[in-house]
Design a protein around this nucleic acid. Structure first.
Lengths: 196, 196
DNA sequence: CAGCATCCGCTTTGATACTG
DNA sequence: CAGTATCAAAGCGGATGCTG
C-alpha cells in the first residue's frame, strides 16, 4: 500500500495493516501458526500471488515470522510475532463492530467454522454478564468447534469433545445467535444479534 | 470495495470500512461534524473525487449522515451516525497499536495538531495509572490544542486556554513523547514512546 | 467558492497458468 | 505443495472542468 504520509498513529497503522486482505491474513494467524496451503484454505477468494506478497510484507514489517522447515522434509510455517499478536485487540474490536452485520445470513458467502471461534471470544469476553460455565459442541460448516466457558472466560478451539453440555447444529447464522443467547443473552440483544 | 464474500464479522466489517481512506475519513468525523472543505484539509493526499465517493458509500452504509444546509445560505455538514460513533473503539485500538510507529519523527509527513487529540485520548484513557489533573496547552503544527486531564480521564480539544499548567512547544514527535511522559509515564514506556 | 464529476496515466488486484 | 509469472480489469492519484 502506498503510505498515507501522515504523522498520525491511525494512518501509520493503516500503512502497515490497511492493505486489502492483510487483516484477514492476521485473523488466520491469530488462531495459531499456519502453512501456506492452510492459509489459502482459510482465505477463500485470495489470489495466491497476493497471499505470497502479503506474507512478505508482513514479515518485513515484523508482524509475521516465517519458520523454515527443520532438516527433515516439512513445509514452512508462518506465525505471528509478539508485535503481530498485539493486533488481537484490534481484530476483536472490529469483530465486535461487525457483529450486527452477521445477522444477514451467510447466503453464498464462504464460511469456516474456525472463524466463529475468534468472534465468540471477542463478543463474550467483554460482555457485562459473565457466561455460565458450559461446554458447547458446534457442528456447522467445514469442521466441528468446541466452545468452553469457565470462570467467566470463553475459549474456542477446533475439534470435538465427549463432554459437551450442549450440541448446536444448523446454519452458521443460527448457530451464532443461539450461542450468544446461551453465553451472553443481554449482550446478544445489544449487539443486534437477535432474530429479526 | 469488492466484498470478501465471507461469513465472518471481520470480513464484513472490512467490507464496510476497509477501503483506502475510509477509516481516516471517520477519524476526522470522530472529532465532530465537518464540511467538505474541512475534510479535504484534514485528509491531505486524498483526491477530491475519492472523498466524495467515500462519503457517499459511508452514507449508504448508515455510518455518516449528510446534513443539508438550512434555508439560509450554508454548506452541507457531515456527521457520524450512532453506528458511526461506535467505530471509536476500533479507531482507538488502531491508534494504540500504531503508537510505536510514531517514534519515527514526522519528517515530510503531513501533520495536523488535531490528530494528536484522539491519539492522546486513546493512549491515556486506558493506561494503568491515572493521569494527574492537569491542563496542557500544545503549540505545534497547524493549530493549538488543549489537553485536559481530570478525574482520571483525558479530553482534548482544539483552541487555547489561559489556565494551562504546562505549555508544550516543538515538533509533533517530541510533543507526543513529553505529553505521554506527563500523563502516563508507565504507559509511555510500554508503548515504546520513549526516546531511542 | 464549495462540492462534486470527468478524464487519464499509473498502481494494485484477481484469475489463471506455470515451475521447482 | 509452495509459491512465481503473466495479464486483464479495477481502483487510485492528480489535474481539470462544470454547476449552483
Amino acid at each position: 500500500m502506498r503510505s498515507y504520509r501522515q504523522y498520525c498513529g491511525l494512518a501509520r497503522a493503516l500503512d502497515v495493516v490497511g492493505d486489502r486482505w492483510t487483516l484477514l491474513v492476521i485473523r488466520e494467524l491469530l488462531e495459531g501458526p499456519r502453512r501456506y496451503a492452510e492459509l489459502l484454505d482459510g482465505l477463500p477468494g485470495i489470489a495466491t500471488n497476493l497471499l505470497a506478497e502479503r506474507l512478505r510484507e508482513l514479515e518485513a514489517a515484523g508482524i509475521v515470522q516465517r519458520e523454515d522447515p527443520a532438516p527433515p522434509v516439512a513445509t514452512a510455517l508462518y506465525r505471528l510475532t509478539e508485535r503481530g499478536e498485539q493486533l488481537r485487540p484490534v481484530v476483536h474490536e472490529l469483530l465486535r463492530w461487525g457483529a450486527p452485520l452477521m445477522i444477514e445470513p451467510a447466503g453464498t458467502d464462504e464460511f469456516r467454522t474456525r472463524w466463529l471461534g475468534e468472534a465468540i471470544e471477542a463478543l463474550v469476553n467483554r460482555s457485562e454478564t459473565e457466561p455460565p460455565d458450559v461446554v458447547v459442541q458446534l457442528d456447522t460448516g467445514d469442521e466441528p468447534l468446541v466452545v468452553e466457558a469457565s470462570g467467566g472466560r470463553v475459549h474456542a478451539h477446533t475439534g470435538t469433545t465427549t463432554e459437551a453440555d450442549v450440541v448446536l447444529q444448523g446454519p452458521p447464522d443460527a448457530i451464532l445467535g443461539k450461542l450468544m443467547g446461551l453465553l451472553a443473552p443481554a449482550s446478544a440483544g445489544a449487539q443486534g444479534l437477535t432474530r429479526r
